[in-house]
């Protein structure tokens, strides 16, 4: 791995974050919805006060939040604040700060999404490789249509179905949430067990929704990989089946899997967010739903931005690790 590749990749990372931040800043300003006015008229109505002086109040607030300044100045401030991860106060849960709320939700999402992704990629790749392996047990062949169906059904529908089957009909798992109300959050064994118990169904929804995709992709790669000369050579040498499968066939086709993992993380986290909504899991997805339904503009911005950062960082890490996984790849030098 060369320094110039690393720099280039870091540059791309910064570019992605900047483009995302800019989109988030300018897109809402194309619409005419004013969060301050909406918030004020809502509170005014709730208090039964029909607004004299609302216009002056609006001006005051706009001055306070810097909304009376020209757009490019606002953009400058926005970039500066975003760089410091300062997203201001939540409008719906004032005086809570957006950052605090996000930090509370973040571990839930990262834990659930990370574990589920890991499991589904490993399981799916293994199953897909076996599907293409001619010496694998016969029954595996019948799994193919099953995987085909699984890969097409979106995560959140899987979540709904699981919820109905294993929480409503057979009541072995909780209906939602991250932990039981009756248990006080602490770092004790029963609490951790409780968290795991609550994360089984959302995790399973993510794993089932993802495993088919990885299996199909792996199978397609494996079919091509098995035709390579080095497989024939390994067979001719008389190597054991297990060794050929693991060391020669599987290992070589794992690399494209890593590439497509980096590319599809964005899609997958969108699915994870919606699964959280289905289960009321206390992560970023549920927070986003709350923010949207309360029209909490700052919170929406913050959650959206943090999700984009998570994915950008994960992709960056994978790209940096990739040359280490595959010694054939030497970025930054011309390959011929």
């Amino acid at each position: 791995m060369t320094i110039s590749y690393l720099l280039k990749r870091l540059g791309f990372f910064v570019l992605v974050i900047w483009v995302a931040a800019t989109l988030i800043f300018f897109l809402p300003r194309l619409a005419e919805r004013n969060p301050i006015v909406e918030r004020m008229s809502e509170t005014a109505q709730a208090a039964g006060f029909i607004g004299e002086g609302l216009a002056e109040m609006q001006k005051d607030w706009e001055a306070k939040f810097g909304l009376d300044k020209p757009l490019w100045k606002q953009y400058q401030y926005y970039l500066r604040d975003t760089l410091r991860l300062d997203f201001g106060y939540s409008l719906a849960y004032y005086p809570a700060k957006v950052v605090d709320q996000m930090m509370r939700a973040l571990p839930w999402t990262i834990g659930l999404f990370g574990m589920a992704t890991l499991i589904s990629v490993v399981l799916g790749s293994l199953a897909g490789a076996l599907l293409a392996w001619p010496k694998a047990p016969r029954f595996l062949q019948y799994l193919l249509p099953f995987f085909l169906t699984l890969s097409a059904v979106p995560y959140y529908l899987m979540g709904l179905i699981l919820l109905f089957l294993f929480a409503f009909t057979i009541r072995i798992f909780p209906l939602g949430g991250g932990y039981s109300v009756a248990v006080a959050p602490s770092l004790s064994f029963p609490f951790i067990l409780d968290i795991l118990h609550h994360s089984v169904l959302p995790g399973l929804a993510l794993v089932l929704g993802g495993v088919g995709f990885w299996a199909l992709q792996m199978r397609a790669m494996m079919v091509l990989g098995l035709e390579e000369d080095y497989i024939t050579f390994a067979e001719a040498k008389g190597l054991g089946r297990k060794r050929i499968f693991l060391r020669y066939a599987l290992r070589n086709v794992l690399l494209p899997q890593a590439t497509s993992l980096a590319l599809s993380l964005g899609m997958m986290i969108s699915g994870a967010i919606l699964v959280e909504v289905v289960f009321g899991y206390p992560g970023l997805g549920t927070l986003l739903l709350k923010a949207v339904s309360g029209f909490d503009y700052n919170l929406i911005n913050g959650v959206v931005f943090i999700i984009i950062i998570i994915i950008a960082v994960a992709t960056l890490l994978m790209d940096v690790l990739y040359p280490w996984l595959d010694p054939r790849i030497t970025y930054g030098r011309r390959m011929r």
């Binding site: 989109l23 809402p28 919805r33 967010i273 949207v292 029209f295 999700i307 950008a312």
Partner: peptide, 20 residues
């Protein structure tokens, strides 16, 4: 390339939530 690595659903959320 840049937009493909961004989780699109959340960008759509930003657009859709601002529509009056």
């Amino acid at each position: 390339d840049v937009l493909l690595t961004v989780p699109l659903l959340v960008v759509l959320v930003v657009i859709a939530s601002m529509i009056p």
